[in-house]
Design a protein around this nucleic acid. Structure first.
Length: 904
RNA sequence: AGUCUCUUAGCUCAGUUGGUAGAGCAUUACCUUGACAAGGUAGGGGUCAGCAGUUCGAGUCUGCUAGAGACUACCA
């Protein structure tokens, strides 16, 4: 960070392609959790990878002002410290206190992001409430208003009675109620059974005998009956046909309300009759509109009943009112029954209070046209591309198709205040500034709308507002951009390349960025969207504060290291939920250790080494050297391919196995003698391979690889990508290996496979025949010329790794009966004479086991090859492959059988 | 209710155009080998949820069934 490696300016190549990612801004109140750690890791892997490939790379970081959360937090603090409410201190003082809080505590998450090792550009850090971003918000609001896409209206909205603000549909979470009930209430029909009404309480039986005197409605929310202005039935419902047009004497209110017919009512649900409360239910509102019903508001904004609910109920909380209404109905004999009923209720996402649908005047965005922009982009260009595509592309598209208007005003003080002013007569003036409003109102006597905008309104502009767009210069000059530096940022880095986020905000955020990006920039905000999975606890449960089953990434960092944590997170399949297991991080902690120790070995005898060589001509190299170069380049190619399609876990697996299996288990072991003998060439060579491996690992494990890379002899900025030639030396700016086809050597790989197979078979014999670790054996090998040449040239390594003191290579085997036998791929036979050591019974069992395995495979192959259909219809190469394989196995099995017979 | 995903070794999970089932952890035996015991070497362990179909061939494609889960809408 101090060296400026994370700013795009570090790139000196004027022709460098840009690569940009914007961070999903964490809440200013937030602290790091596993979800962050996951998405941050993926973004940083991509960023470091692209930077090393020479892209002009920007990973833009910033924080979201998080309206409701932050206001709640500061409100709580105010109460604790000063025993005051926001209203006590007033808007101006309160807002100042929020800023104080932000400046003091808002930095926690940014420090944690540094701890994660994210290579974000801190010089461009953004905050949604800062001036430039706020200007962008006002500009967008005004333009949408002028086009008629933003409007003010009175509707049923989601109201949180505790936060006392409206919420958008997406900020409402449906949850099952603990003890839902369905109440059956009898509404007396006016003019029928007149006179009986008064006696209802004394003799409810008479009511039942006279079903014509009432209509029963079922409801989960009896308290709303105080605001009923109709009862609706289906027009086709025979039971109620005659009642349509009649009226009801609504109990407890003294009001008379009509019975209306509406298709919305389903005859076979409940009683087939629905009470209609237009001011307190969205569907009832629609019915009310259709039938011109009165909209009677019976609740206050804190969910207590108001005076319209009647004297007996005014001031009661909604749940108290519910109890009281039910009691009163029971007393009147009008409560038919109460049933248990599973009901899901909307809750405030932040404070978990049950949402109250409330009639209220708010600001909305009409989404139709922007929605069409987004749908067209998907239909015509398949953008953005979702990873994984299934199911997110469809979910996104379907949601857009059914999109409804967006409620954007919030009754809060912390946020972007709506740029609308009212004069004395209530006339509204929407303007970028008060001056502008004054100019068009021709009076200074204006009051600004007290509400602020939904936090997601500013988030929706994030990909371009953070790059400097305020719309002002564009408006004045017809050109896009704002100021010298910012202008170039927008030109260079918009659209961004990829967005990494969780599936819970595809609608809240991703879709809205696409829509505003298309509308205001004329271009998509990003090409690709990676939707990562959810990190669950070890029992597969969602982590949550209430369950206190969360795993704190900072604890994991402390125990296992950031790099091991990053490998674990990147190592989980893209888009799939996964249960957190400490064992998994442990294995990557062990991997870190392995890298550390392997590097230690490579450095042990490197005193004379000053150069990390570059890999080029392999003609004069030994087999293990050619082999490791080939493996390295294959791995590099595969890693680049995997990252290119965001298969992070694939890349992790490749790197893990290349480093551990190929490099540590085989290459180091094969070269050990040379290195420890002080062979400078071998030492320089192994360091070269190691250095390449560290580069490949760097995007995933930045701390460890940098630490070790700096310790290697001869590293310098000469190893940098040419775009960073003059920078301070760091692995971060070296060239990421992409793999070179000309260095992939299949011949070397297959020759090495023979050596490995031989060593493994000998070790197997040693283990199964209980040969002591210290005992040396002789190995007799019968093989063709080619294989003999390969094995002969690697005799020293084979002796060492198989713990042999003698190797005899020949055309055919000439060994004592008391030998352990095995076969190799390619018609080679091996034998280990065990005079005096061999237990014939054990050897017979061992051979028998090998033969059985081969027979099993042979059976399968014979089955397929004797199937005429297979031979006829399968591709010729496939058939030949199986024939070759069968020949090989036949030979091996025959040899082992002979060996077995020879023992008898 | 609609849409979708998942079910593979004891556990947690990979498996990208259909062609001999993989990893990590756990497990068994052996090992103070000059990088590494948080390690090494050699093993054991799976009728890929079930049924049917397409195909020469299915973990992979289609349909159904059974479990688990996700999202969206509704819920008088």
């Amino acid at each position: 960070e101090a060296n400026g490696f994370f700013t795009p300016e570090i790139n000196q190549n004027p022709a460098a392609e840009p690569f940009s990612i914007v961070i999903p801004p964490p809440n200013v109140t937030g602290t790091l959790h596993m979800g962050h750690a996951l998405q941050h890791t993926l973004m940083d892997v991509l960023t470091r990878w692209k930077r090393m490939l020479g892209f002009r790379t920007l990973f833009l970081v910033g924080v979201d002002h998080a309206g409701i959360s932050t206001q709640l937090m500061v409100t709580r603090q105010l109460k604790k410290d000063e025993h005051k409410t926001p209203q006590d201190v007033g808007r101006e003082v309160f807002t100042a206190k929020v800023w104080d809080w932000k400046n003091k505590y808002g930095g926690e998450i940014t420090q944690q992001i540094r701890r994660e090792g994210l290579s974000v550009d801190w010089t461009r850090e953004r905050f949604t409430m800062e001036e430039n971003l706020s200007r962008a918000v006002r500009e967008v609001f005004v333009r949408l208003y002028e086009e008629g896409w933003i409007y003010r209206g009175t509707r049923i909205v989601n109201w949180c009675p505790r936060d006392k603000t409206v919420l958008s549909d997406l900020e409402v979470k449906e949850e099952k109620a603990k003890d839902g009930k369905l109440y059956y209430l009898r509404y007396p029909i006016a003019g029928v059974g007149e006179g009986e009404k008064g006696r209802g309480g004394e003799n409810p039986q008479s009511e039942i005998r006279n079903p014509q005197s009432y209509i029963t409605v079922a409801t989960t929310r009896p308290e709303t009956m105080l605001g009923d202005t109709a009862v609706a039935v289906n027009p086709e419902d025979e039971r109620y046909k005659d009642l349509i047009g009649k009226t009801i004497a609504l109990p407890l209110t003294g009001r008379e309300i009509p019975i209306v017919a509406d298709e919305y009512v389903e005859s076979n649900f409940g009683t087939g009759a629905v009470k209609i409360t237009p001011a307190h239910d969205a569907n009832d509102w629609e019915i009310g509109e259709r039938h011109g019903l009165e909209k009677l508001v019976v609740m206050n904004d804190d969910a207590t009943m108001n005076s319209a609910a009647g004297e007996a109920f005014a001031g009661l909380d909604r749940f108290e009112a519910r109890t009281k209404v039910v009691e009163e109905f029971e007393a009147l004999g009008l409560l038919e029954k109460i049933e248990d009923y599973d009901v899901t209720l909307p809750h405030c996402e932040r404070c978990k209070t049950v949402i109250e649908p409330l009639l209220s005047e708010q600001w909305f965005v009409k989404m139709d046209e922007m929605r069409d922009l987004a749908l067209t982009l998907m239909r015509e260009e398949n953008l953005p591309r979702f990873f994984p595509e299934v199911p997110h592309k469809k979910v996104y598209t379907t949601w857009l198709e059914n999109l409804r208007d967006w409620t954007i005003s919030r009754q809060l003080w912390w946020g972007h205040q709506i740029p609308a002013w009212y004069d004395k007569d209530g006339q509204v003036y929407v303007a970028r500034t008060k001056e502008e409003a004054v100019a068009s109102a021709e009076t200074t006597d204006l009051t600004q709308d007290p509400d602020v905008l939904d936090t997601w309104f500013s988030s929706a502009l994030w990909p371009f507002s953070t790059l400097g767009w305020t719309g002002e210069e564009e408006r004045e000059t017809g050109r896009r951009g704002d100021g010298e530096t910012d202008k170039s940022d927008l030109d260079v880095f918009y659209p961004t390349d990829v967005l990494v986020t969780g599936r819970d905000i595809i609608f809240l955020w991703v879709s809205r960025m696409v829509m505003t990006g298309l509308k205001f920039m004329g271009e998509r905000p990003f090409d690709d969207v990676i939707i990562h999975g959810t990190v669950l606890d070890k029992n597969g449960q969602r982590m949550s504060k209430t369950k206190s089953n969360g795993i704190d990434p900072l604890d994991v960092f402390a125990t296992y290291g950031v790099d091991a944590t990053r490998m674990t997170l990147a190592g989980s399949a893209t888009g799939i939920d996964f249960a957190w297991r400490d064992e998994r991080v442990e294995s990557f902690r062990n991997f870190s250790n392995k890298i550390w120790n392997a590097t230690r070995f490579c450095l042990m005898n490197s005193d004379g080494t000053t150069n990390i060589s570059l890999l080029a001509n392999t003609a004069n190299l030994s087999l293990p050297d050619k082999w490791i170069i080939s493996r390295l380049n294959k791995t590099a190619k595969a890693v680049n391919r995997a990252l290119g399609t965001y298969q992070f876990h694939e890349a992790v697996q490749l790197l893990y196995h290349f480093f551990w299996d190929d490099f540590c288990d085989w290459y180091i072991e094969l070269k050990k003698d040379e290195i420890t003998a002080g062979d400078a060439t071998a030492s320089a060579f192994i360091l070269t391979i190691l250095e390449q491996a560290l580069r490949l690992l760097h995007p995933f494990m930045p701390f460890l690889t940098e630490e070790l890379w700096q310790k290697l002899p001869g590293v310098s900025n000469a190893l940098h990508n040419s775009a960073y030639a003059s920078s301070e030396q760091t692995i971060m700016l070296t060239t990421f290996p992409t793999g070179d086809d000309s260095l992939i050597d299949e011949q070397a790989e297959s020759a090495m496979a023979s050596v490995i197979e031989l060593i493994t078979k000998i070790r197997n014999i040693r283990a199964e025949m209980n040969i002591k670790a210290g005992d040396r054996v002789s190995i007799h090998i019968a093989a063709d010329n080619a294989m003999r040449t390969v094995l002969a040239s690697n005799e020293a390594q084979i002796k060492k790794l198989a713990r042999a003191d003698k190797i005899v290579l020949a055309n055919s085997l000439d060994v004592p009966k008391a030998s352990a036998r095995a076969v190799l791929t390619g018609n080679a036979e091996i034998a280990v004479p065990l005079e005096g050591l061999i237990d014939f019974e054990m050897e017979r069992a061992r051979l028998q086991g090998q033969i059985e395995k081969l027979d099993l495979e042979l059976q399968r192959l014979n089955g397929q090859l004797s199937n005429a259909n297979f031979v006829e219809k399968a591709p010729k190469e496939k058939v030949d492959e199986l024939r070759d394989r069968k020949g090989e196995i036949d030979n091996q099995a025959a040899t082992l059988r002979q060996n077995l017979e020879a023992l008898n």
